[in-house]
Every structure is written in structure tokens, then in C-alpha cells.
Design a binder for these strands. Structure first.
Lengths: 364, 364
DNA sequence: CTGGATCCGTCATACGTATTACTTGGTGCG
DNA sequence: CGCACCAAGTAATACGTATGACGGATCCAG
């Protein structure tokens, strides 16, 4: 709504044109409780104050005015903009440029500290580049039709996707994509954790403590990251003289892990350490150990993976691998923004860090 | 990826096909299967296909065409739109209407399942109304200057804010605001949990088990929700003959809670139950109990508040109050959308549910 | 003195939509 | 028959920005 002095005009409707008293229902909320006029200043307002044309304002603020505008004029424009607190209207910008400075972040869920941290890292980088993030929760296994969230098709420049088949994104044909922590062999550039390296560190730690019979409580999820963890552990154990691996699988769930780990521990020749694919699985392993009267770590060592909040709430605290989720988000967003600016896609891997706490000790 | 319980996933490189070297974009197609240019169809394209004018398309798709367009024409428009897969350009819409269908969600952090769930509920409701959510992480106590995230000033219709002084939002003067789980006495409409009621349920439960000396492990955070919990607990205990309350405070942190609870338990006349303001505090109480050789629940009962993942990972599982975070987000968003459509602000309170698990028993 | 060349800017326009004012062909009615 | 009126649409416009096409000085060489 035109509130302040604009002179261009030539309103087709005469002086009486603004008498509309619509009560249609889709109005409302235009003026806040404070009753201020509240029309945001436009580039034309800035132009008027600086005594130049709107196009000059646009040129100056875009920063590409060398050789077209004198330094003095440029300064005047900047000053006027600052005085009015001018912020460009994003809608107009998007309409003109065809780009929205918005990135879609696809996550299986936000109800997990891991993905929350991932978001935080991505948002920090995005904000630094003037980009906005819209989160698109996409539960695992859900098809586009099952999804309770409408995808904002129209308004994105790129996609940062975690845990989702690239094919499911077919709706966004032609949109640059960076995948997070998924199979690097896929079509899209990927930023992931070097989980194989992380698992090698775990293996090195427990084998170094003297363990030889290693129990692996694996996640019952057919995903690249877990397959990779399993392979790395198996390789490390096999490479050790006397090394031996027993594996059970469980859904990522405390109760399921307890049952699976219990089965493993009840075998006559039970392993002396349980390497778990995930901290939640480790929590289940704790429960199984307690059930069987095994002391951790004296009677049984346990390790996790991820280092979520849970890890330090357990007693004793859990030896695990810290995956820097926030850095993953940040690196992924940085990669995507590079692509959006015409750079070549570039995949990366982030190292995990072994955090040794109280749940591991030499075998009994 | 951690803790997500993912089911579906397959190697992105399918059998055959995707052997081209391109790696940017979901699918490299510059033109669709029909050979059309890659630009998204506009309302004019729809108009041309339907044999009508652009304004007719707009009228029909807006749904308010009764008496202005014949049913037959309307159907033709709908069909053409469907055939082209037309989606209105949001930027143009926003520019024209001055509204963005975007809501800012202010949260202290997303690295917590609670706020993640809150987001999920809010997003579900927003998506149902064609609104988009932009998350604005605002750590508690941070001023606007400290904030590493740039606020997208230009592009929001309303604000849903959790745990933040309304005054800190002064930047957004005139924008409708709904506060979540904060002091209902404030200026803005509020949706919160009836934590007083929840705490009364906890008190009723433990007092009903026969406990009389109640220890309160309170959060050392001066926030409405915690003050309210404390008052409700005190009132319930005082109203019970023989009831007695001992209180310690601790930062919301497992280690701090352990120290505080330990102090309480080492007193000569120690309480027989620890009512904790929060599940994390309860986790600390477990550790203190174990340290002192107290069995839970036989020697000491413990209760939490919030019912986060942690609650069932503890051994024994924690008796606590489930706060439906997702519903909070949904109710808050619903309230905000009502306001945006001109409705009167309306505050609400959501009840919590007592979840009795294994950590409470009659006093020894 | 004149015809470029160089500066420093402005004009006009398009992006895609929603909406208001207007047109047009038909119809009822006095 | 003439006029108003209705149904069914269409033309025109504005939202605020970015940018390519233009324009008026000023200066310099010939």
C-alpha cells in the first residue's frame, strides 16, 4: 500500500480510489497494535532522499557501480539508505532475478539433537551469505504423497538433503542438490562423515585394550553409513591375530538393542566388548549387561557411535565417536552455496573423533 | 545416520541410465520430456492453454469466481493448470499482496528433541495453510547483536516465539506475535503447558505413594515455567499433613544435578523422593543415588519432567510428565494463523500427562 | 569548431500475480 | 423499441527491483 510520498504515479483511479472498505476476511493484520503506518521504505524513497533516481540506488547498493556512479553520489545513497533503514524487498528481488536465496533442507526429523545441530551449522553458513533455510521434514520411507508437509516448490534455489533417495527429489528437477551423509557413489555431490575412519579408531581402541572377541550390535538399517561402519569394524578385527567378530542386528531402539545384545551375551563364549553402531543401541546394551549382572566396564566393555546427549547420561559414561553434526551442516551448506555461485561440485568427508570415557577397559 | 531409524534407502546410482558425468542437479534435464523450455509455467501459459485471459485464471484459481466465471470455463482452467503442473509463483504473489505466507519461528535451540518436536507440530499446521516456516535460532539471553543468524526482516507475516522476551522482538514492531510456553501475563497472546497442573499430578502421585519428605531438584533458571513448577509442588506438599519440602537448585545439566542431588541426599534426614524439574536433572539424580548406594526406586523415588528420549533410556525407566511439544507447536501456529486472518488473539493452555514408570515406589 | 570518447546517470521495462474498472453480447421489461 | 441490467469475461495496472538502452555534459584531438 502506498503510504508515503511517491510522485511517479498517475493513478488511474482518481482521488476517490482509496475508499475501498473491504471486509473480505483475507485482510487483517496489516497494521499492528502500535498503529504505525509501518510501510517499509523502498528504493524509490531512498532515491528521493538522496536526490537520485531509483536505478542509481539499485546500482549502488548492488555494489557494481564502478565507472557508472561517482563516489560522492554513491556515498549519498548509502547514507540515505542507512537513515531510512532500507532493506530491499525480497519478494521483488526474487521476482526480478528468478532466484530466491532460499535453500530447502530435507531431514528425516528434527526431533533429534543430531539433526538439530546439523540445522544450526547449515543456518549459520546460510545466514552469512544472506540465504534463508526452509526445513522440509521428510520421514524415512515416506513417499511424497504420505508427506504431511507441502513442499514449497516455487521458492528454492537449492537443496541440502539428508537421508533421502535422490530419486524422491524428482519433483525438483534441475535444482542443485547436495546430499548429506549418504552414499558418496551417488549422482549428487556429497558431504559425509568418514565413519569408516571413526570405526577404525574404535576398533583400534578396544583391540589395543586387549579385546579379541568383539561383539557388534549393528543397526538393522540398510543404509550406507551403517554398512560402512560394519565393513570397517570387520576389516579391523580380521586384520588382528586372534580377532573374532560376532554380529547381531537390532532396530535403532533401546528395547530392541537390549534384546539383541542380551542374545549375544548369553552365548557360551560371549564377546568381551560390544561395539554398537549407535549410542541408543549402546544404551540397550547397558541394560542387557545389567540384566545379566555384568559390570561395565570391568566385566564388559561397551562403545557407541555419534556422541549424543545420552552418552554422558549413561553410567558409566559411554566411550563413543563424536560426529560433528554442526560441521556437517555447515560444510554441506558451504558446498551448496559454492555450486549456486557456479563453482564445481565438490564432495567432502569429515573426520569423527574418538571420545574415550568410562565404558571401556581391558577384558576381564 | 544416527538415531533416525531409517528404512528405505538404496544406492542412488541405479541400474543403468545415470552414467553421465554430470553431478549437479537432481536430474540434468534442461527441457522436460515434452521438449518444453525449463521455465516454470505461469498463469499466462495456463490461460493460453485454456483459451482464456490471465485474469480469468487468477480469479478461478483464487476460488472466488462465483458469479463471474461460468462453471465450464472454470473447469477448463483447472484442467489446464493441472496439465501444466502450474504452481503460482510465490515471489510475485508476495510482491502483489504484501504478504509472504511465511512465519518466523524463534527457538533457543534446535539441538533438543523438545524443540524439534515443537517445530514439527508447527510445520504441520503451517503447511496445511500454505504457510512456510523459517526457523530463527535465538539462544537464551542473547541480544540481537550476538546473534549469528540474520533475521529475514522483510519476509514474514508473523512470529511464533519461544522463551524470549517480547521486547527483544522490537525489531519486528507491528508484526503479530504468539509466545510459546512463556509467562501468560505478558503482552502477547500465549500458548503454554499447564505445568502447574502437571506438577500437581506428580505431587499427587508421590504423596499418594506415602512420601512425606519431598526433595525438589529445581532448575536454576529464572523462567516462568520453572517458577510455576516450583510453586505448584510447594503448594501441594504444604497442603498435605506432615508434608515437608527440601529444595536445591542446579543448572540444567547432568553433572550439576548430580552434585546438587548428592548434597540433598547426604543430609541426615534425607527426602524419600526427588522431584526434578526436568528429565536431565533426574538423570543427575540417578547418578547421585547410585553414588550413595541407594536403589531406585526401593530406597529412593525419582521423578522427572518433559519425557524426553532420556526418560526411557534410564534404568529403571523414569516416571515423568509428558509435555506434548508437538501439540504446543501446532496450537501456537493455529493461534497465530487465526490472528493473521483477523481473528482475536486467544491464549491457551495444554495439559501434561503423568507417565508412571519404574522410578517411583512407596518410601522405604 | 566539430566529432567522437568518456563520465555519470536516468528511462523504461519486465518479472508474475491479484484486482479493479471496463467491455460485450444477450435478456427482460416497460 | 429502447433502456437497464446481468452474466461472463478481459484489459490495464501496480507491487519493488535489476538492468539494458539511452542521453546530456565535458573534454580532447584534429
Amino acid at each position: 500500500m502506498p503510504g508515503s510520498g511517491r510522485q511517479t504515479s498517475r493513478p488511474a483511479a482518481g482521488p476517490g480510489g482509496r475508499s475501498d472498505g473491504r471486509s473480505d476476511g483475507v485482510d487483517g493484520a496489516a497494521t499492528g497494535p502500535s498503529g504505525r503506518p509501518a510501510t517499509r521504505p523502498t528504493s524509490r524513497d531512498v532515491a528521493q532522499l538522496a536526490g537520485v533516481s531509483q536505478s542509481t540506488v539499485s546500482l549502488v547498493l548492488a555494489g557494481k557501480w564502478t565507472g557508472r556512479v561517482s563516489p560522492g553520489t554513491a556515498e549519498a545513497v548509502h547514507e540515505a539508505a542507512a537513515r531510512l533503514g532500507y532493506r530491499p524487498n525480497q519478494a521483488a528481488r526474487s521476482l526480478r532475478l528468478g532466484r530466491t536465496r532460499t535453500v530447502l533442507l530435507v531431514l528425516p526429523t528434527l526431533s533429534s539433537p543430531f539433526f538439530g545441530a546439523l540445522y544450526t551449522g547449515a543456518a549459520r553458513v546460510a545466514a552469512g551469505h544472506g540465504f534463508r533455510i526452509v526445513v522440509y521434514p521428510w520421514p524415512d520411507g515416506a513417499g511424497p504423497a504420505d508427506n504431511p508437509f507441502a513442499a514449497p516448490h516455487e521458492a528454492i534455489d537449492g537443496i541440502l538433503a539428508s537421508s533421502m533417495a535422490v530419486e524422491a527429489l524428482s519433483e525438483f528437477r534441475g535444482t542443485p542438490v547436495v546430499m548429506l551423509d549418504s552414499d558418496p557413489a551417488g549422482a549428487a555431490p556429497t558431504v559425509d562423515f568418514d565413519v569408516a575412519d571413526g570405526m577404525r579408531r574404535v576398533a583400534g581402541h578396544v583391540l589395543g585394550l586387549g579385546h579379541r572377541h568383539v561383539g557388534h550390535v549393528a543397526a538393522d538399517v540398510d543404509e550406507w553409513t551403517f554398512r560402512s561402519r560394519g565393513r570397517a569394524l570387520a576389516a579391523a578385527v580380521e586384520a588382528t591375530p586372534g580377532g573374532r567378530l560376532s554380529r547381531v542386528t537390532a532396530a535403532i531402539d533401546v528395547a530392541a538393542a537390549r534384546r539383541a545384545a542380551g542374545g549375544l551375551l548369553r552365548r557360551p563364549d560371549r564377546p568381551t566388548v560390544l561395539v554398537c553402531d549407535d549410542d541408543q543401541l549402546a544404551a540397550g546394551a547397558y541394560k542387557a549387561a545389567r540384566e545379566l549382572g555384568l559390570d561395565v566396564p570391568a566385566g564388559l566393555s561397551i562403545t557407541g557411535f555419534d556422541d549424543v546427549l545420552l552418552a554422558t547420561a549413561l553410567e558409566p559414561e559411554l566411550t563413543t565417536v563424536r560426529l560433528p553434526a554442526e560441521e556437517l551442516g555447515a560444510a554441506g551448506m558451504a558446498t551448496l552455496l559454492e555450486m549456486l555461485e557456479g563453482g564445481a561440485p565438490r564432495s567432502r568427508s569429515l573426520p569423527g573423533e574418538l571420545v574415550v570415557r568410562g565404558s571401556t577397559a581391558p577384558p576381564p
